[in-house]
Design a protein around this nucleic acid. Sequence first.
DNA 1: CAGACAAATGGTAGCGCTACCATGAAGGGC
DNA 2: GCCCTTCATGGTAGCGCTACCATTTGTCTG
Lengths: 381, 381
Amino acid sequence: MLDNGWCMRDPKQIELGLGDDWNADFRFAAKCWRRGGGAVTKPRSRRGGGRPTIADVARKAGVGAITVSRALREPGRVSEDLRRQIQAAVDELGYVPDPNARALASARAEVFGVLVPSLTNNVFAEVVRGIYDSLSDSPFRIQMGNTHYSGLEEERLLQVFGSQRPAALIVAGIDQTPVSRKLLENAGCPVVQVMETGPDPVDMLVGFSHLDGGRTATEHLLEAGYRKIGFIGARMDPRSQRRLAGYRAAMEKAGLFDPRLVTTTPLLSSVTLGRELLRDALAKMPSLDGVFCNNDDIALGVLFECHRAAIDVPKTIGIVGFNDLDMMQAAFPSITSIRTHRYETGRRAVAMALAAIAGNRPEQRTVDLGFELIRRESTAR
Amino acid sequence: MLDNGWCMRDPKQIELGLGDDWNADFRFAAKCWRRGGGAVTKPRSRRGGGRPTIADVARKAGVGAITVSRALREPGRVSEDLRRQIQAAVDELGYVPDPNARALASARAEVFGVLVPSLTNNVFAEVVRGIYDSLSDSPFRIQMGNTHYSGLEEERLLQVFGSQRPAALIVAGIDQTPVSRKLLENAGCPVVQVMETGPDPVDMLVGFSHLDGGRTATEHLLEAGYRKIGFIGARMDPRSQRRLAGYRAAMEKAGLFDPRLVTTTPLLSSVTLGRELLRDALAKMPSLDGVFCNNDDIALGVLFECHRAAIDVPKTIGIVGFNDLDMMQAAFPSITSIRTHRYETGRRAVAMALAAIAGNRPEQRTVDLGFELIRRESTAR
DNA sequence: CAGACAAATGGTAGCGCTACCATGAAGGGC
DNA sequence: GCCCTTCATGGTAGCGCTACCATTTGTCTG
């Protein structure tokens, strides 16, 4: 065992020592805060803190508060002159509008709600990055939620998000529970489902067909001459299930499907797990000559296991991944994968939501961004 | 070249077609919305929508509004009887408090502001995951910002976040600009800097010493008998700089430092880049016999490049990574790395912030979570 | 030049909630 | 019994902003 290592500090020290009842904790926290207990607060003259308000700006600029409000939100409706005066006052006072007051008064928050099943999965991280980049110069904030692949958690978060009257909602997937679907339909804002295609979006939809992706990957292996092609998948969420369905369709069409070729687990995907699953797959079916992996982490694990077991890739076993993360190209041998447009998905979702907010919903409510098969060494025999 | 692939759809189709002036876009959007233009809104009787308010609950329960408010926030201060009545009314009406109104009235939003330099970097994703998990059952929302490793962007986001009167701020790193530092000091809420240690935190600090990490990694290579040990680093942010400093300290102490052993680039880190950087390093210094990599992506790239160039690892070249992502353990040969406690960092940061909100700031304002050297095959010669 | 109409600005009245203070009732010490 | 707390509840007055409806001025039509 090489994984011994020495510890710089006692790991016990790293525990947290937190109570379970966060609400109680916070209630206590809030009470203390009110009494000026802990926080580094400056003494505040007025209740809301000493910060300038719209009234301060209005006074300084010699105009009405509402004109300041308009100058900031709809500059076109305020005369050039006043606009300059107001801008000067804003700059001088360092005025920043209070988003809470704004949301309360207008019954609409400048917030995009974003729901993803995982924060660390690179796939969703890329989508989220696209969303952030698209909104970074906009007045919109982003409220993100992690559903942990749980329908119940999604319902809860949707409930919470809805209470804020968001400007739009972006959610991963199309497999919402009936309750979630109802919440989305009644959200009173544009809704974009991402990462899939399907016949019946709640509102708008951006993604691609995982079924076609799975089929394409499998057909590629078949064309390359592989026959005993296995499917290896972890964390079998709905998207993985569809990839599996695509695999199965291609294998059945070729008359090669065999349930013993399929190896899955509900465990969270990881490179290490990819290694273990290949071992399992080979134990069940020693004559395996190809693998379509649920995702690239698994594919990388499979590759490493092949190295370790001295199995030649691509000669003895061909490997195809899914998503085409950067490392697929760098691997040795480089790994064939299905490239998906994750960043673009985020961008497009925001673009569609903004269009809908502006009242011109795209006539095309479903956008299929497709995917690409990237052929590499791992299937070139 | 194997990276040809065929495209399922015209990539040109994937462009966005968005204007540059988001503000103008949104202004238009908002205007349309007000006129009932696009969104799927239900007709609303009152201005704020037809949702139940605290007054509705109070009426139904036969109590004053303020009692409802208290029952929800400080149940202990309301009698058992009324609490039950109120809860029944809340459930029946499906009442959810409006966080905007709450924030406005109390001059304090139940929001944690979180600022990270990257959303896709697994390191920060893990910290963020810890933060999310720690707050998932709390009343706090999370407002995340992506600084893109830019001080200016950080200042801008801090400004925006501050306008919301957050309950706490968590920011990555200790190298804020003077402006950012001032903004943090005046935020009027607990502030936790994460991912580093240092002598002078704004408020609280959770992390570890990247310098010590770099030194430890390098000393390990030295102990294993490597002599011409290179440093390979991409995206040389302040943390990477400190790792480099640790590397340098160890090498100088051993009398082995040579600037030609250091290969860096400001480019964003990736596995592919790791391959290229090793090529560069070997071009400069063909006798290289060890590499300490800035992070695990780079280390993986280095490993793949060694495979491709038929360089034996660990015999000819030893490799050490940084962070100990899952794939380090799965790689063949497995890769020695410095394990960092990213998830725990997020958890601890939240715990400290909550404690501070509650008025009992930990006496220990700086928490060093340390790191571990995980010895593996890549340095076992 | 009246009448109509748009453009520019302002006043008022909330949005839904909580801080602050007031009230009345229930205990507790001498 | 008195005063002094403490506890449970409620009324009132905003928090900072914007929707809605004036009001004023200028411009255009016939």
